[in-house]
Every structure is written in structure tokens, then in C-alpha cells.
Design a protein around this nucleic acid. Structure first.
Lengths: 240, 240
DNA sequence: CGGAAGCTTGAATATGCTCAACACGGGTGG
DNA sequence: CCACCCGTGTTGAGCATATTCAAGCTTCCG
């Protein structure tokens, strides 16, 4: 049962935003109805399929996007084609490097996604105007920095088995943020190839380690993508 | 020949700040003399030797610090002792995770450092008050995020040889930011052990790769720490 | 039913690690 | 002033882990 949340001046809240899941989360939560109205005049909702590129590395940025649904992957590529996933973004994250004219990563839809696209100018103007908004954008950047540093430990110091366990554990806690002792059930938002690029491994190694976790009864796999973890704590101890 | 820079109301600029190298850089550059005066009443200068720990992981934070001289390393440690350096900070960076009650990394002086220590309360109060200050802090966070992501590519996808070359290239460009075609000469701010922890390698592998670069004439080593790079472009191509 | 894409499994190989010995340089004390 | 010692760095040999290359298997779709 879903009810529309009440704003103080709900009549002033743009129609599109009234039913938006992200209205009170992410950056929009920092805006008053008036600011929301200004912003909403410039935004548009877009759906993208898995695999579509939203922004290329080193290309000019013309817009930010709110992630409303689905998973986005940020990647970097070496000249010879070696690829590394450097970040994953979920709803209600804001997409786009604030205050940069060029993207420093390539941005791609990992699953089907819904986005609320915001022109660069519009959001940056509003940020100069609204300290709470800028603050929220900063808090997201800081959270991403924490996550990146956590991941550096995984990339630099964990074994293949620990890397794969860490990845599964991260997805499990992100998608299904129940208790650590609980059972979890979810669909992997990434292909084996994406997981490999995220972990700095080959797809074969990822596959072998997943098979091993399955053989050891730590996870159950149906249909490649669908995973069940009977006991998250048992997965947790495999993360190193 | 060093001259003291003129502020509009130089008389109002605190004595300590007047001769401070970082006065117009880092976060202090975003402050007017009045704000600087308020802040300076709470700060104190501290010198730390290489190896001293400034902040422990998961411990409460009571202060921020401006790095005035030297190199700081941010590390994370796994339960079994495996260590990963997740960031390096140079002058005039601000030390300390903004708006967090606990540190998420362990902070250690990699060389002898001079710091300007700022109580947590004082800086955060000023940030709420001054959008330009908060903006500058955000810009640093975003730069650190960019750097972390660049480093994830190195950790995840580069060979040992490329990792070591990348590290030397990064230090060379940071310490001696001359042209890429130029000759560079500098002291390594990190021990072999720190370099290994930064690159996700062992000290033996780091040593071997440095020896190889030396044998190939890409770098010259005097005295372990002191490095000369006759041609940065030749080092650059080894970074992958 | 056939084909393609994505995934798994196996065998051989290479890259970086472990363990161990040794070298260098700086400081200390006889 | 030299001998010694300790921390730090280098080098070598054997080994383990993850990669490469190759084949075969699922699942999805036409």
C-alpha cells in the first residue's frame, strides 16, 4: 500500500516529483517545494537498457542524473583495453562528477535503469544558491570516497576467493539490507565479466570461486544471476 | 627572495597565518581575514616525525589538520595484518574525514610533517557558516575520489612493473610538477614497505621492479631514496 | 531445433609470493 | 678510527595462485 507523502505545500510540488521514489531521498530531499519546482522544469525522465553508455570518459558533461532505479557502473579503460570498474551507483545516487567539465570515467547502465536527467547548468546554479543541496552532494562524494577506499583494500590485498565473497556480501547488504545474521536472496546486477572487471580478476577465476562457494554450501545459485545466501555471517567470514 | 603577501586588511590577519605557506592555498584560501582570525585562535602548529600515528582507524575524531609540509599516508588494515595504503596527502591538503565522528582510516606521517591542527568543532562551525569554505572542502574530496579511482585501475589491472612505474611517475609529477618531457629528481617519501602496501605488492617485488627500471636506464638510484628520472616520457610509457 | 551469448571446467603456464641469504649504510661504542 | 650491529633494501630459488587457452555446457531466443 503506497501513499503519497505530504509536503507542507503539496500543491506546489511538481506532479512528476509527487510520485517520485527519490523525492525525499538523494539530493531532492534537500530542496524546498519552490526549488523543486524550478529544477523540475528542466529535468526529464529517461529509461536506459543494460549496456547503454550514458557518458564517455574524457567527454564533456552536459547533465547530471538522479538514479531512480537500477544499477550504474563507472569504469576506466587502459589504452590496451584492460578495464576496471571503479564504482557502482544505486538509487537514489546522483550521477556525474560535480563541477567538472569532463567526465573522468565512463558511465554505463549495468541493468535497465530509470534516470531523472538534470541539465548541468540548472543543478550547479541551484547548488551555488542552496548550501544544504551542496552539502548533500558533498556527503555523497564523501561516501563514494569511503567506498572507493574500502575497495582498494579488496583490490590490493585480498585473494580471489576473498574478493568474490566480498563482492557478493556487498551486493547482498546493498540490495537486501537486513540483519547480518539473516538469510538473503537477490539477483546479481552484474554479469560475470563485469564482476571480473570490478574485482580485477578474469571471468574464469570469478566463475571458479563462485562454484567453490556453491560447493561449500555458502551460497545457492539458480539461473546464473539469482543468488541465495542461507547465512550471511558465513559469507562474511570469507571476506578476509 | 620571499615577500609577505598583502591582504586587504593585513593587520587583521593573524601573525601566525601571515607567514604561513598555506595561507592562500588549501582551505584557508577560502577565508576572509575575520574568519581566519576566529579560526586561528583555535589552531596550533604541530611537528610529527615519520612513522608517528596521527589518527587510528575507527577512533573518534577530535580535529582536522592542514598539512603544511611533508607526506601523510592513509592506510587500512585487515584483521590478519595485511595492509593497504589508500591515500597519500601532501601540503596543503586538509586531513580528516569531514562530518564523520570516527576515522575510517589510520593516518600516519610518512615523512616528518608540519601540521596546523584545527579542532573539529571550530572548522565544522565555520563550514556551516561559509559556503565557499565548504565548497573548497568538497573540491578536495572530489579530487581525492578521482585519485582513488585512478589508483583502483592500477591496483586491479596493472602488472607489478606497471604499478611501480606508475608510482614513481605519480611521485615525480607531484613533487616536481615540471613538463612531462623533462628530467626529474626527487626523494621518495615512502619506504619500500610503504610502496609495497600502496601498490598491493610485496617489498621484494617492488625492489625487483625498481632494479629492473634502473638496469633499463629508465631511472637512476642513489642512496635508496633519491631517484633521478632522465626522461619522464620514457617512464610514462611503462605505466601501461 | 539451431545458434549465440554467457558461463563453467580443465590443463598448462606465468606472474608474483615466500623463504632465505646476503649487501649496504648509518650510527654506536670500544 | 675502525669494528660491529641493526634496520632497510636486494637478490635468488622454489612454489602457489591466478591467468591463458581451449573445450564443452546452459539458457535464452528466434
Amino acid at each position: 500500500m503506497q501513499t503519497v507523502r505530504k509536503d507542507i505545500h503539496n500543491s506546489e510540488v511538481p506532479v512528476l516529483c509527487q510520485s517520485c521514489e527519490a523525492r525525499h531521498q538523494g539530493i531532492c530531499g534537500a530542496l524546498n517545494p519552490e526549488q523543486l519546482l524550478t529544477l523540475s522544469k528542466a529535468t526529464r525522465r529517461v529509461r536506459k537498457d543494460a549496456g547503454e553508455e550514458l557518458m564517455a570518459d574524457a567527454m564533456p558533461i552536459s547533465s547530471y542524473s538522479n538514479v531512480l532505479r537500477g544499477v550504474i557502473k563507472l569504469t576506466k579503460v587502459l589504452e590496451d583495453g584492460r578495464q576496471q570498474v571503479v564504482g557502482l551507483q544505486f538509487a537514489p545516487d546522483l550521477l556525474g562528477r560535480p563541477f567538472a567539465s569532463e567526465s573522468r570515467v565512463s558511465v554505463e547502465a549495468a541493468s535497465q535503469v530509470d534516470l531523472c536527467v538534470i541539465p548541468k547548468q540548472a543543478l550547479e546554479a541551484l547548488m551555488l544558491d542552496s548550501a544544504p543541496l551542496e552539502h548533500r552532494v558533498m556527503m555523497q562524494a564523501l561516501r563514494e570516497l569511503d567506498e572507493a577506499r574500502d575497495w582498494m583494500v579488496t583490490l590490493g590485498r585480498k585473494t580471489a576467493a576473498e574478493k568474490v565473497a566480498s563482492f557478493l556480501f556487498m551486493i547482498a547488504s546493498h540490495i537486501d539490507p537486513t540483519d547480518e545474521e539473516a538469510r538473503a536472496k537477490f539477483d546479481l546486477p552484474l554479469s560475470r565479466s563485469d564482476i571480473a572487471d570490478f574485482l580485477g580478476l578474469t571471468i574464469e577465476t570469478v566463475s571458479r570461486q563462485i562454484s567453490k562457494l556453491k560447493a561449500d554450501g555458502v551460497i545457492e545459485i539458480v539461473n546464473y544471476r539469482h543468488v541465495t545466501v542461507p547465512d550471511l555471517a558465513r559469507l562474511r567470514v570469507r571476506c578476509g
